[in-house]
Every structure is written in structure tokens, then in C-alpha cells.
């Protein structure tokens, strides 16, 4: 088993073999991130391409191989957000859509919903909601950090997050009812 350190060293020397090894080892993780931030498989794969190109071109900036996983994760999320920015889809939501009350965010859940289904729920979310939900809930960033990344106000993020939760809760409840 080749160590991450050797792979990184190879990638820093622009060796195609090492790049392939790095890709083989981390493509599934990157794909997982990309899927959450995108609407479908095709879009996710486009994102994965961009992410890996960025990883290979910026690997010189990686100082410590120990942080490789989190570094790749970071690159992945940043690339996803950059892609959304490039598409110029607004992250803000109109005032009338703002949720006026924060309801009960607990729902009946029996651990029987497959991950693919949950992923589909996320992917079905509106673009802005999805990004915020991914950043703030799943990737665990604080609203402050996320606001800096997305260059919008914290209030907007909270609202987006609320909206996402509401939609997701409805979907889960519907799913539980039908099955």
C-alpha cells in the first residue's frame, strides 16, 4: 500500500502515475461531496473533474500530507461553490419566501430511508437552499464562515437553511407515510 505521502510527492513532481493513484483513492469521497452540491450525476461528474484538476494543479500548496483528506474536502466544497457562482444563480431568496416561523424540526424517522433517497431529496432542493444546507448542516461550517464563503448575510443563510429543513422534513414525512 503506497502511502499518501509518496503519492503527494509524486503528484508534486507531476507524475501521471501518482495522480492516477490519488484519483483512485479519493474519487469516491470527492464524488460524494459533488453529488450533494449538484442536481444530478452528470453535474456531479463535471464537478469531480474540476475538483481533481484543481487538486493536481494546486497540490504544490499542500504543506502537510496528514491533512490531505480535509484538504481535498475543502478543495471540493470550494470548487462546488465556485461553480455555482459561475452559473450566477442567486443565493438569496425573495422576502415573501422567507419562512416566518421556525417550526419543530424533528420528524418521525426510522433509519430505513436509503442514502440514495436522502441524496435525491437534497439534490431536489433549490440551488441556494441546497448549498447552504450542505455547508452549514452536513459540512458543519458555522453561519459566519459560510456567509464569508458565499459573500452574503448570515440572516439570508439562516433563512435558506430553515427553508431547506422544512422541505426536507416534508419529504421525509411523505416517504415514511408511503412506505
Amino acid at each position: 500500500m503506497i502511502k499518501d505521502r509518496d503519492i503527494v510527492a509524486g503528484c508534486k513532481a507531476d507524475k501521471p502515475k501518482s495522480q492516477r493513484l490519488l484519483y483512485d483513492r479519493y474519487c469516491r469521497m470527492v464524488m460524494g461531496v459533488a453529488l450533494r452540491y449538484s442536481q444530478n450525476q452528470v453535474e456531479a461528474e463535471d464537478l469531480v473533474q474540476e475538483i481533481f484538476i484543481k487538486i493536481f494543479t494546486k497540490i504544490q500548496q499542500l504543506n502537510d500530507e496528514i491533512t490531505l483528506t480535509s484538504w481535498i474536502h475543502q478543495i471540493a466544497t470550494h470548487t462546488c461553490i465556485d461553480m455555482l457562482r459561475a452559473k450566477k444563480r442567486p443565493l438569496t431568496i425573495p422576502y415573501e419566501e422567507m419562512p416566518n416561523e421556525i417550526g419543530d424540526m424533528n420528524c418521525n424517522y426510522y433509519d430505513d430511508i436509503p442514502t440514495e433517497k436522502l441524496l435525491a431529496f437534497i439534490q431536489d432542493l433549490p440551488e441556494g437552499c441546497r448549498t447552504v444546507f450542505n455547508l452549514c448542516v452536513i459540512d458543519g461550517l458555522s453561519y459566519e464562515e459560510a456567509a464569508a464563503m458565499l459573500s452574503c448575510s448570515e440572516t439570508t443563510l439562516r433563512a435558506q437553511c430553515c427553508k431547506a429543513r422544512k422541505i426536507l422534513k416534508k419529504k421525509i414525512e411523505n416517504y415514511e407515510k408511503t412506505y
Binding site: 474519487c27 464524488m31 460524494g32 450533494r36 436522502l118 441524496l119 452536513i138
Partner: peptide, 9 residues
């Protein structure tokens, strides 16, 4: 569900 989520490529 998505903490260590990995998906096939």
C-alpha cells in the same frame, strides 16, 4: 447519513 458519504464514480 452523509458524514463519510462516498459514491461510486
Amino acid at each position: 447519513q452523509f458524514d463519510q458519504f462516498e459514491a461510486p464514480v
